[in-house]
Amino acid sequence: MSILEVSDLAVEFNTIEGVVHAVNGVSFSLDSRETLGIVGESGSGKSVSMMSLLRLIPEPPGRIRSGAAWFESSKGRVDLLSLSKTKRAAVRGRDIGFVFQDPMSSLNPLMTVGEQIAESMRLHLDLGERAARKRTVELLDRVGIPAAAERYGNYPHQFSGGMRQRVMIAIAIACGPKLLIADEPTTALDVTVQAQILDLVKNLRDELGLAVIWISHDLGVVAGLADRVIVMYGGLVAECAPVDELYEQPRHPYTEGLLEALPRVDQDRGEELRSIEGTPPDLYLAPAACPFAPRCSYAFDRCRQAVPPRYVVNNGHDTACFYDLAERRPRSE
């Protein structure tokens, strides 16, 4: 059963230089208990699209131009994008938990870590001070903070980067959410600490039955975590597929290029990496063609004249490309 259905989401930003077309019509759905990985490079729109679901982008300069996001909240099915401010606040933090890349800037430096976790439970779950405190200590312990009761009164700066991310996770799961949205939560961490955090998230996900949207630029992290993956490029969904299929049979030239550009720690030194020539797309231009066409070795005339729709490859796998990578020829019109 799907708990989130996003259709035709488009987001733009007004800047001095002009309008930035950050997200240009993104659609996807998410089942309960499913983990969806969203990969893409900087500027691909992966963060902006997920942040705008909860209206976490600054408006203005940001503007949601179109779209709907139907979510099964604890109070019924709602469109996140058209909810009133108060109703939105009731969903945010309660039914949907967030973990951001940089815990130092998402935690309040003037509030103890314990109070920050307890705050959301007092607000959303109507817990009294005592009950919230008790539950907070349990949560701190659950996310792997040693001597949890003693750390309740500590401030964020007294924690290491990995520990702060554990605190963020505790806040995100405090009110028993159905959905956890994690925006590059391990990107700023060292690889051994990243391994600890990934292990924790996997355990919590299975234990609490969470649906997860995991935004990352790291194809390795997503390979180990996701059931299904969306690859974004230039504010559009380039490809969407079950995780094994995406890595084994990519059907979008961008996905194929990304996978070939990656060296692997478990394989011997190769001669040369395949690189994707050219530079990322110019988002000041309204999308009128495939955004990847200028860097694509398969591109032909049609790619420069229209935005490709998402062609279904098979059940659960689609690609926004006019070229059929499996058949090695352009698709018939």
Binding site: L198, G224, Y247
Partner: peptide, 16 residues
């Protein structure tokens, strides 16, 4: 050993 083992691989089967 732990550093190398901690690196995620871009391959779902190897990851499992």
């Amino acid at each position: 050993q732990s550093l190398i083992s901690a690196v995620p691989l871009p391959d779902p089967k190897a990851e499992r």
